[in-house]
Amino acid sequence: MATQPTELANKPKSTSNWRDSDWKYRLGIGNWNPNQQSEAYIFLLLSLLGFVIFVVFPIVYSFWLSFQEWNLLSPPEFTGISNYTQLLTNDDTFRRVLKNTLFYAATIPPIQLALGLLMAVALNTGIKGLGIYRVIYFMPVVTNIIAAAMIFQFLLDKNAGLIPSWVWQFNEATGIRVIPPDFLGSTFWAKPSVVLLTVWKNVGFTMVIYLAGLQGVPEVLYDAAKVDGASNWQRFRHITIPMVSSTTFFLLVIQMIGAFQLFAEPFVMTRGGPAQASLSIVYYIYQNAFEFQKMGKASAIAWVLFAIIFAITFIQIRLQKRWVHYEVEG
């Protein structure tokens, strides 16, 4: 049987009588009992079980499902890779949603990063009422998406909305007839409108992370640059941007993933329309699964999406050496 170091282990370290204490104890030997592993596993079991049931199993199951045809009601039927081939070769809608999603991925993260950094830098100048600004800009992040989308619908509505109303007022005042864009009702403007809502909703989060990143930029660098006669822009370009590049990298990765998984914004604001102009990949997964009862196809799309996100994240991680600086002072 294993040794029982309990008595020794319980002995306070500060005891004056060092000679009484066991050398093993002082060297840290025997404090760890290999038999305690079983208890550790029991403690782990609960969360491990949750992980297996709610994460591992669904992932494996969806992979298996992507090779089946299943409408939830009758038993799944094996169809080989036909879900994938049909998706990649003969599905106009999938091509359209892929294009839409690439548009989201190409616009939302860059705009959010640029805007978030600008706001963070502005707020980092030590202006009065910093806390209030931070709250204001962060508010949309915790705003309910449905409420936010409804407000944007109100803002953008062609005839009754606030923003087009400025155009109408301009027309009235000048006698010129400019027709404001139909932001949510035209295939051209639907995607930018969704981007607008998404950026508005999430830029506060980007700003807060950047603010934290900026706190870590040592003041001495700016001071040194100032002494060397660097302008504001030069200091921003050559100190701020490189020094927060690790923050930028983190934000870029998660925002890119987020953009590929965009769902709620087009779902509540445009229903993916008009004419699927704002439909995203995840929305299309939802449609296939719960509107057309094609669980197999929905799973296949999910795995294609996984492959895309994996590839893009992988490339980002490989490229980070070229532009991300991790060196910290000292």
Partner: peptide
């Protein structure tokens, strides 16, 4: 029908309703 209407008929008709 749901799929035909949801992916083929409905979205294209929306182009007409949008005047495009």
């Amino acid at each position: 029908w749901n799929e035909i209407n949801g992916t083929l008929i409905g979205p294209q008709l929306q182009l007409i309703w949008a005047g495009e």
